Structures are given as structure tokens and as C-alpha cells.
Simulated assay, not measured.
Amino acid sequence: MRLIFTVLLFFVILLSQAQARDTIFLWPNKVPGEIDVKHTAIKSKNTKGNVIRLSKVTNPSLIVFKPEKANKSGAAIIVCPGGGYNILAVDKEGYEVAEWLNKLGYTAFVLQYRVPQKQKGALNDIQRAIRFVRSKSNEYQLDSNKIGVIGFSAGGSLCARASTLFKEVSYSKIDAIDQLSCRPDFSMLIYPAYLDKGKNRSLTPELKISNNTPPCFIFGTADDKYGNSSLVMTSALRDNNVPVELHYQYKGGHGYGLRAGNVAAENWPSLAEDWLRRMVDSSELNKYVRNQK
């Protein structure tokens, strides 16, 4: 009898957890520029490194992670997993990060953006996601001027694009949500990639940085083959008087997420938490709420 009760309790817990995770599909009808029909993302058979990899995302979505106890900032953070724009490392650089943010009291949204190799579609998706979260401010008790992004590797590239291309009309407006700003109010780039595609490994020409680009936290390492991205992005932000905080350590590699056993993975979260407290939880961010349209 006790065994039956335990099993039932286990399934009740699983059910309650599933119910707590709202899924928001970004595009009610046709997905802009998408030729494939909408379907559930394909989970790869490759689980190397104990990572869940999603591929063939055709119906972009946000998975909602609500904190048990929200802090007083009202901030929300959209989490963008990496994967080279080919797959999404959706647990290591998505769900696990969202759960960490929940522990800090932030509402998190994990973005499942289009892959593989649909960079324009991915920009559509993150712009729509920022607008969607902003439209849900009252429902989730958020401050509409504190909608940020955090991205890893290719997800960091996507967040950098969202932070610099928010005036670009990347898709045709479909409803009232698209009247809202798609400018993130702050951005966090963790071992970002593909930001140094310019001449002589300079800033990727697509990225249009101005003094209206939101404040940014960047973490990278010297032994990451993509490590130059952190340096050129920081330099460009500094040259445009955008508040930027860079942490760059000598060792850590790439693709570590939050997982224990890697010195970089064990260091960046506390540094990011401190930056969030100073920049986002206080009134400091209000200085940088500028012309978002």
C-alpha cells in the first residue's frame, strides 16, 4: 500500500510540475519565412555530455519558469540556448539556467528558436518573444521596462543581435503585440560566439551598436576558440558609451553552462547574479530606458 501511495505521489508531483510550465507558441498562424509545417521539435538521439539536443524547430515557443518566490525587481529574462544555430542544448543552456534564475527570484522564459541554420528566422523569433513577454507583464507581474535576455554561444550571438537590431523590421507585424518594443532592456552574453566575423576578426558587420544599445554583461575565457567574440563586443560597447561589464578568465573552454566541474561554470553565475543585483534590481537600469522603437 505504501508503495502504491509513493508511486501516486510521484506522478502527482510530475503532473504539478508539468502544469506549472506554460508553453507560449509565438506565432498563432504562419511562421514568418518558414516553409516547413509546424511540428514538435525533434529530440536528437545524440545525448553526449548528458545534454538534450533539439533540432528542426518549426513552431517557436517560450517555456515559462515561474519562481516560487519572486524578488521585487519585476524583471523577466528570456533564455537562449546555444548549439551553433544547428540544435538547441535546451537543458544545459536553457532549462537549467531558467531554474537557476528562478532561485534568484526572476521569472524566466526559455526560447526555442528556429534551427537548423535559420538565423533570420531566429531573429524573428527573439524579437517576437521579447514583445510577447512585454505584453504579458501584467499577467506575470513584471516590469515592462525590465525584460532582458541571456544567451550561450549561438544563443549569445542571438541575444547580441536582438540587442543591436531592435530597430530592424525583420518580419511583418501580425497583431497588437508587434506594436510593442523588441529592444531588450539588458543583455547577458555567456561565452558568445560569431560576434567577430568582421575584417581581421573585428565586430560582425550585422551588429549595429549605438548608445541606445542596452547594458550588457559578458563572460568569456581565453581558451575558448570563440573567446574573441567577448572582447570585440565589449570594445564596441565601450566605444559607444554603453554600460558593459566583462569577466574574462584564462580557462574554461566553451559550452559548460552551469554544470559543476568546470571552473568557468562555477564562477560566472555569482558574477552575473551580482551584476543583476546592481544593474537590474536597483533603479540603475532606469537610466538606460531609452527610445526603444
Rank of each mutant, 00 (worst) to 15 (best):
Q127W: 06
K197N: 13
S187E: 15
F166T: 00
R131P: 08
K199T: 09
E168N: 06
N200F: 15
K120G: 12
Y171P: 13
L180C: 10
C216Q: 09
G121T: 04
A108M: 05
Q119P: 10
S153R: 03
K120I: 08
V149G: 00
K173E: 15
A222R: 14
P215S: 08
G121Y: 02
N138T: 14
P214D: 06
N145C: 05
A176C: 11
P214R: 00
C216G: 07
F166E: 00
N212K: 04
A176V: 11
G121H: 07
F219W: 09
L158K: 00
R128H: 12
A154Q: 04
V115F: 05
L165K: 00
F186R: 01
A129Q: 07
L165A: 03
N138W: 05
S157H: 14
L104A: 12
Q112I: 03
L158R: 01
S181M: 10
Q141C: 12
N200Q: 15
F109I: 08
V110N: 02
P184C: 07
S163D: 11
G105S: 11
S210W: 02
S170V: 09
Y106F: 14
V133G: 07
N212L: 06
S170R: 04
L180E: 12
Q141Y: 12
N211F: 09
D143Y: 06
S137G: 04
D185P: 00
T221Y: 06
C159L: 02
R201N: 15
K197R: 12
L165R: 00
G105H: 10
L203C: 09
G220K: 00
K199H: 13
A162K: 00
S170T: 10
Q117C: 13
F219L: 10
A160H: 02
S153D: 12
R131Q: 15
D175H: 05
K173A: 15
G156W: 03
R161A: 13
K120C: 11
I190F: 01
L142K: 02
P184Y: 01
E168F: 02
D175L: 07
L189Y: 04
A193K: 01
L142E: 01
K167V: 01
S187D: 15
A129Y: 07
C182P: 07
F186T: 06
F186V: 08
N200Y: 15
I218T: 03
A222Q: 15
I126T: 06
